[in-house]
Amino acid sequence: MSEEAAIEVAGLLKSYGDTEVLRGIDLRVPAGGVHALLGPNGAGKTTTVRVLSTLSGPDGGVVRVAGHDVRRERAAVRRRISVTGQYAALDEQQTGRENLWTFGRLRGLGRRAARERAAELLGSFDLREAADRAVATYSGGMRRRLDIAAALTGGRPRVLFLDEPTTGLDPRSRRTTWGTVSELARQGVTVFLTTQYLEEADHLAGRVTLLDRGRIVAEGTPAELKRRVAARRLELTAVSPTAHQELRRRLDVAPLHDDPHGLRLSVATDGTAAAVRGLLDRLDPTADLLARFDVLDASLDDVFLALTGRATRPAGTRPKETGHAA
């Protein structure tokens, strides 16, 4: 059983009308651990999750989840998985407890077992106080917790699909969700989650698959992926548009990133003092072009950029790590 992959996908195709959304996906997710499917908006993450979790049929290819074919053995797959979609799948006008009770009963629990399971989940997801309020009154974080709890009413699934589990959550709720995901993985659930946040994949996942426009562009551990680009990135900020142009002209390698509006340029570096000083001296010997520089750890953002030539989010929203006035 442990030899068996939790998810095996070969040549998966899926179109909506004329739009080819998934264009030949191959994927193998070993049992256990957290696997992240990372990609920008519109990459096809939700479509992939829907096909893997039997909610949409594939147009081509073979998909096996928890040892069963999603097309031919759909019922068997459904008994072994749970899904929490991108948008909450809850009844707003039922209370948290009623939602969990309903799902538990539909999962085949008896009345009493469903009641106990609901109470247990409400406790472990910190929803005891809100248990008997309509979901319509819940905050985003509470809703998300209930939505994940709802995926566990039938017990621990073999494979748990979470589509963007933290999108739109405040940092505290995000941490809580991360804790839940890690805990479930520790208990032996294979978690397949999607995210647009590189730091999330980095933080949670043992393995990451990068999806771009319906194709897989890279796959590996976060460390392996980071190794595919330079370890560090030197981010330069020019004093003016003219200075930015001049720096760009003096650079003898292609920048990792060029953002004329933000007056920024990024260059791969090993981050040593010698290399950084050398580069700064070469680019700006008179010390009047550069406003500041930042040495940043290569993030999965950089991996994505290196592999697809496109950023996953608008320039200028990267978190700063070490900054130095130039």
């Binding site: 008994r79 629990l109 399971r117 406790g123 997801f125 039938g154 017990g155 839940t180």
Partner: peptide
């Protein structure tokens, strides 16, 4: 933060396929 003991089913073995409800 969820308590570890409560995330799994109380009595069921891990990874037992979920039961199915009758029609």
């Amino acid at each position: 933060m969820p308590h570890s003991h409560a995330l799994g089913p109380t009595r069921a073995a891990p990874h037992r396929p979920a039961p199915t409800a009758g029609p």
